[in-house]
């Protein structure tokens, strides 16, 4: 059984365009399957629809069409059972989604009661979680006096508190300092490997997903455009040959155009334009050939080439490429 499964999942919202309300699909016909015990990443730029998917899985948003199952339960028909199976974190709220006028401990106690956790068990867990997040001393301080990072920690603790089989982590590390983010990722990894918890993790930061997740889905404009392991995803890129040129000028459309006029040089993949140096990646027919021909050509036109080499694609490139192309 898949821990999370959606088929044809669609959610439309209204958006104002030219003063008129027009429907658009925030989640567009999404098929997703996350296996039990898997650490699965959902990656996509802001507005891709990640949060909407997660909220549908949480039973907070009702889908328009399609199906979604969490722990085998239908999110529309059996919301109670779904909620008993999940922990949800919405990191983007930056710590707003807590009772600011309760202490960290009171917040956790409150949610423990709502989650049907026996008070004795709750006490043990709360203590352990507060200890893990280095918050024992601040446990009885009102949340309103916390930094964003501390609030996020309380939110994390609240999510883990019921010890659910499935964790829906929506940008959980936003607002955490680097060290806490690393620890949190380690904890998630341990929950997945040692306890077999299923974790769906969204992020717009490819580096954390690349390192953490076993499989990744890349999303854009409501659609899933690729699902695979991080390694496989980078290999998609590797099939294309590319070189990376650095010149000591600001690159402008004219420079980019010039490059493409060279025999055997194709599309520009990426251009990082700086004040006095620019990095350009282009697709080429043959890498060796291009590494020889491009500098000669550019220098002939009066450009100063600092370096040229084979471009090694990273997940970032895959991500950039996939999410830039109109779906």
């Amino acid at each position: 059984m898949n821990a999370i499964e959606t088929s044809g999942l669609t959610k439309r919202f209204e958006r104002k365009e030219d003063g008129k309300k027009k429907p658009f699909a925030a989640v567009d016909n999404v098929d997703l399957a996350v296996e039990e015990g898997e650490l699965f990443g959902l990656l996509g730029p802001n507005g891709a629809g990640k949060t909407t998917i997660i909220k549908i899985l949480c039973t907070l948003i009702l889908p328009d069409s399609g199906k979604a199952f969490v722990n085998g339960y239908d999110v529309v028909k059996e919301p109670d059972k779904v909620r008993a199976s999940i922990g949800w974190l919405h990191g983007e709220t930056g710590g707003r989604a807590l009772y600011w006028r309760l202490s960290a401990r009171d917040n956790l106690r409150f949610y423990a009661s709502l989650q049907n956790i026996h008070p004795d068990v709750a006490k043990k867990r709360i203590d352990a979680l507060l200890e893990f997040f280095d918050m024992e001393e601040d446990a009885d301080t009102l949340v309103k006096d916390f930094s964003t990072g501390m609030k996020v920690k309380v939110m994390l603790a609240r999510t883990l508190l019921p010890n659910p089989p499935i964790l829906l982590m929506d940008e959980p590390t936003v607002g955490l300092d680097a060290a806490s983010a690393v620890e949190t990722r380690k904890l998630l990894k341990a929950l997945s490997t040692e306890l077999g918890r299923t974790i769906l993790f969204t992020s717009h930061n490819m580096f954390e997903v690349e390192r953490l997740c076993e499989r990744i889905a890349i999303m854009n404009s409501g659609k899933i455009i690729a699902v695979d392991t991080p390694l496989k995803l980078s290999e998609i890129m590797r099939e294309k040959k590319a070189v990376e040129v650095r010149i000591s000028e600001t690159a402008d459309p004219k420079t980019l155009g010039l490059l493409q006029s060279i025999e055997g040089v194709g599309k520009v993949i990426k251009a990082e334009i700086g004040e006095d140096s620019s990095l350009i990646q282009v697709e080429v027919r043959d890498e060796q050939e291009a590494i020889a021909s491009i500098p000669d050509f550019l220098q002939g036109k009066g450009y100063n080439v600092i370096s040229i080499q084979r471009a090694l694609p990273t997940l970032e490139d895959v991500y950039m490429k996939l999410t830039r192309e109109p779906a």
Binding site: S113, H118, F132, L191
Partner: peptide, 30 residues
């Protein structure tokens, strides 16, 4: 920060205590 105590704790089978009364009380109390 070490995750092992939490992992150990979460391995334990625990009692659930389902009580609407406790939930209502928690909402009032908080």
């Amino acid at each position: 920060m070490s995750s092992s105590p939490i992992i150990e704790l979460f391995k334990e089978e625990t009692r659930r205590s389902k009580s609407t009364f406790r939930q209502v009380y928690a909402v009032i109390w908080a």
